[in-house]
Design a binder for these strands. Structure first.
Length: 569
RNA sequence: CGGGGUAUAGCUCAGCCUGGUAGAGCGCUACCUUCGGGAGGUAGAAGUCGUAGGUUCAAAUCCUGCUACCCCGACCA
């Protein structure tokens, strides 16, 4: 492509709307433009990237034996009522009403539609296994869309759904998708990790996520150095610390702590470590408020907490009035001593002694508190907190590390949740009806583009992995409009490269070289070739890879080799 | 959804407090000079100052409603 014909506008300044680097660079490089909150137009250069991602995903899905189809984006409410998700999926559903006042939604996901397809099409176990997939636009009415295409409301997703006769078949289909996904992210050229995950709203049993590693990622991943364990921090289990609880060494004392409400404030005021303070959180329960007790330096894990009996899901913190009624003090001074509501203790609190906690009295805390003396020792402790770096690997050896990741893929074993609800059955060999075992497998196509940039950029712009770069080479003539030699050589090279199937962005604009170099780096094209009188006099072009610090002079043949990715001697 | 903020040229913003002829930089058009890391000059195009109403001789500026967008949001007990 010739730059002059591409209507490409790059920006020097960072648009005010962009918060994270991928969003900023996508706007500056002219990949996307915003239409309204969380909804974007993919401009020609951005679309080229998107199409490459899609192509790789399709190739690997096809290789794994999946069948592409295309389901409607608009779905009738009745289907969603069959699975009760018309109400349960809640505000994420964009609801639409037609002229006959019938309800529809713009599909946020397609379990209902595919299960409807399955119950109509599938009659016999002989048709199994089958895995249908599509690449399609979804809409989820996020509370707060942000981060550009990383959390947009409208986005493109590859979603696949497998149907098997039994659990063993599902296991095989799931494993095939896990392999396919691994191949996809390897081919995309991204550093990623597969982690155990919570299955969340979609339902079902086993699930794993694929995360692109990036410091800006919204998710935290716990993993073992040995490589044997990786899980989303949401689900990574903590274990009770080994050893016995030390004997009390100090007497119980009530101390004034006026205005000190947070763990940090209390610890600082009393001159103790946050780990020596007990954190008591009051949350909504099914029969009145419930207290959750953690070590002061630990973080509550909402996913774990809301699964406890008697706790309301999704986890909801009690309001100030409820805290007042339950503890007798305003928020900030709650503690388990003498507390008249159900209490859950985190594992880590079980071995604490001589600790600090709220006195259930305003502006006061207790010090030298001990289980078995000042309050009953908990009958059992539970897993309430996020794992942290250095925690033991669950069920394994060694210690956990924490990395940040962007979730770009998720695979689930759904089981028969949807097939039972919607009556998707086949006859088995014995002529008996069996509910289909389902799996579902999603990849965020648009999110991958953003994640790739989050992981691969520098201060000058994007650094595309070669597999998804919008072009292979950025061709920069110097003095194109003034040097016939340069013009003829560049035109010839452009023609030759195009004929060889190399995707070229030929910067034929009459602008100074610095402008072209800056755009080449902003756009992140992997290879750059410069044609100049100076170089041509020596029979050479100037080559530089986007990741290189310096350029080098190369002959024509070597330049072509480099562009084709052949090894350089 | 709750809280906060913003809305002035394609982009980034100033002007508003203290009402009186709408500005800058970048970008865009033309010409001149320049030409290997986002050049300089001259001339120009481009804004009903989000929207509706109110106050006033006079509103981008003050007041009210509306809309859109952005940011923050239970780890606090």
């Amino acid at each position: 492509m010739r730059y002059s014909g591409y209507a490409l506008t790059t920006l020097k300044e960072i648009p005010a709307e962009a918060e994270i680097v991928s969003h900023q660079l996508m706007l500056r490089a002219g990949l996307i433009r915003r239409l309204t909150a969380g909804i974007f137009t993919w401009m020609p250069v951005g679309l080229r990237v998107l199409r490459k991602v899609e192509a790789i995903v399709r190739e690997e899905m096809d290789r794994a034996g999946a069948l592409e189809l295309l389901m409607p984006a608009v779905q009738p409410a009745e289907l969603w009522r069959e699975t009760s998700r018309w109400d349960e999926y809640g505000h994420l559903l964009l609801r639409i009403r037609d002229r006959h006042e019938r309800d529809y939604c713009f599909g946020p996901t397609h379990e209902e539609v595919i299960t409807d397809v399955a119950r109509r099409e599938l009659r016999s176990y002989k048709q199994l296994p089958v895995n249908w997939y599509q690449v399609q636009t979804k809409f989820r009415d996020e509370i707060r869309p942000r981060f550009g295409v990383m959390r947009s409301r409208e986005f493109i997703m590859k979603d696949a759904y497998s149907f098997d006769l039994d659990a063993a078949g599902l296991e095989a289909s799931y494993a095939a998708m896990r392999t396919a996904y691994t191949r996809i992210f390897e081919r995309l050229g991204l550093r990623f990790r597969v982690v155990d995950a919570d299955s969340g709203e979609i339902g079902g049993s086993r699930s794993q996520e694929f995360h692109v590693l990036a410091d800006s990622g919204e998710d935290a991943i716990a993993w073992s150095e040995s490589g044997g364990y990786a899980a989303n921090v949401e689900t990574a289990a903590t274990v009770p610390p080994p050893g016995e609880r030390p004997a009390p060494a100090r007497a119980l004392e009530r101390v004034p702590t006026p205005g000190a409400r947070t763990i940090a404030e209390v610890a600082a005021l009393l001159g103790v470590a946050p780990a020596a303070v007990l954190k008591t959180l009051i949350v909504a329960g099914t029969a009145g408020p419930v207290a959750l007790v953690l070590r002061g330096d630990h973080e509550l894990n909402a996913v774990k907490a809301q699964k406890l009996p008697g706790v309301v899901a999704p986890l909801t913190m009690a309001d100030a009035a409820t805290v007042q009624a339950a503890t007798g003090a305003e928020p900030g001074y709650a503690g388990p001593v003498g507390l008249g509501i159900p209490v859950y203790f985190d594992h880590a609190t079980g071995v604490m002694a001589d600790f600090v906690c709220g006195a259930n009295e305003e502006d006061a805390h207790l010090t030298g508190v001990n289980f078995g003396r000042d309050l009953p020792a908990p009958e059992r402790t539970v897993d309430l907190r996020n794992v942290g770096a250095g925690d033991p690997v669950p069920g394994g050896e060694g210690k956990l590390s924490i990395a940040r990741g962007i979730e770009v893929g998720h695979i689930f074993q759904l089981g028969t949740k949807y097939s039972r609800a919607m009556g998707a059955v086949v006859l088995d060999q014995d002529g008996r009806e069996r509910a289909l075992e389902m799996g579902c497998y999603g990849i965020g196509i648009t999110r991958i583009v953003g994640a790739a940039i989050e992981q691969n950029h520098d201060e000058n712009g994007i650094i595309w992995p070669e597999a998804i770069a919008p072009f292979d080479v950025y061709l920069v003539p110097i003095n194109l409009q003034r040097s016939e030699t340069v013009r003829d050589a560049t035109e010839a090279l452009y023609t030759e490269l195009c004929a060889a199937g190399v995707e070229v962005l030929y910067d034929d604009r009459d602008v100074r070289p610095g402008v072209k170099f800056a755009d080449a780096e902003l756009l992140g094209i992997p290879h750059r070739l410069v044609v100049s009188d100076r170089g041509l006099a020596a029979g050479e072009f100037e080559y530089r890879h986007r990741r290189d610090a310096e350029s080098r002079a190369v002959k024509r043949d070597r330049a072509l080799e480099l562009l084709r990715g052949k090894p350089v001697p």
